[in-house]
């Protein structure tokens, strides 16, 4: 079992004809993902290594029955690409694009909530999602993941997502699903969305959570874990020794209060019963210990 994606997921790559789209789209297919279509406006009728390309998401969905999209287009085009996917009835949009303006993100995420509540956006600015052995959408190197579970991974950082997969796979501990939610200010999917899905997934027995300094998403996750999770959670927060950022104005401090520091996040998670590790390697070791004790 897994969350959000499995071996029936049918993927259309928005931006398949670009260099990144082609490289990662084909890698995803090579991994075993059902990459059924590509979309690039103006390039309909072409194909990329046998994958048909359409002008619009509507045509791609009608022709191939795709239910999921992988958005790999530059920042100016990404907001409209996400909304086009939602309009076409896509249920899961994975957007890896880095550098989308926050105002666009805020508008798109709230438009999805209001008009397309059944479409889930993962990202932007994330590595994507992988259910090892079944489906890999995004830029995660598939060979570092190990199928069979029982650990679910959710991470705000791209490269630390790989590090977490790697630490577990090295110890022969597999994963159900590993999802990178991205570090942008307005992510489509939150820690809590993923934690609740892992809690409900019978194959997932424990969850590893990777956070970073800034914002209050980890503190909110800690509240959720304390109130609603029965499965063990191991966490690592990056940035314990990061220099304090320059901050202007008062609005940020008024909104977030004391939230945002690594120390505050680690304490909140610790108080919620989470095993908090001091680095990714230790997080892996703690998780291995938990899995062996299951």
């Amino acid at each position: 079992m897994s969350i959000f994606v499995d071996d029936t997921t049918r993927v259309v790559v928005q931006g398949l004809t670009g260099s990144q789209g082609r490289f990662h789209g084909l890698r995803n297919r090579e991994y075993g993902t059902k990459v059924v279509a590509g979309v690039t406006p103006g390039k309909g009728g072409a194909d990329v290594d046998g994958i048909p390309v359409y002008d619009s998401m509507k045509e791609a969905v009608e022709a191939t029955g795709a239910d999921t999209s992988f958005v790999v287009v530059p920042p100016p085009a990404a907001p409209e690409a996400i909304l086009e996917a939602a309009r076409a009835g896509i249920r899961l949009v994975v957007c890896i694009t880095e550098g989308i303006p926050a105002q666009d993100e805020a508008r798109v995420v709230n438009t999805l909530k209001r008009d397309y509540p059944s479409t889930r956006l993962v990202g932007p600015n994330c590595p994507g999602i992988i259910s090892p052995g079944m489906c890999n959408i995004g830029i995660t190197p598939g060979d570092i993941a190990l199928p069979g579970g029982p650990v679910g991974i959710v991470s705000r950082s791209g490269t630390l997502t790989y590090q977490a997969l790697y630490e577990l796979s090295q110890q022969r501990v597999g994963q159900t699903t590993c999802i990178g939610i991205g570090g942008d200010p307005v992510p489509g999917t939150s820690f809590i969305d993923c934690l609740s899905a892992f809690e409900a997934d019978p194959a997932t027995k424990a969850v590893m959570m990777i956070g970073e300094i800034g914002g209050s998403a980890e503190e909110s996750a800690a509240e959720y874990i304390a109130s609603s999770m029965t499965k063990p959670v191991v966490a690592y927060i990056a940035g314990q020794t990061a220099p304090p950022g320059r901050r202007m104005g008062h609005a940020g401090a008024i909104v977030s209060g004391s939230a945002g520091t690594a120390k505050g996040k680690m304490e909140a998670l610790g108080a919620a019963g989470v095993r908090v590790a001091k680095n990714p390697t230790e997080a892996g070791e703690v998780m291995v210990e938990i899995v062996h004790g299951l």
């Binding site: 490269t159 630390l160 570090g183 314990q240 020794t241 990714p280």
Partner: peptide, 22 residues
């Protein structure tokens, strides 16, 4: 030098944990 802000921050953390300073 690291790729990604998370891994870069984590690298700082680990350097400090093994007794060094970035």
């Amino acid at each position: 030098i690291a790729n990604g802000a998370g891994l870069a921050m984590s690298t700082l953390d680990v350097v400090s944990q093994v007794g060094g300073s970035a």
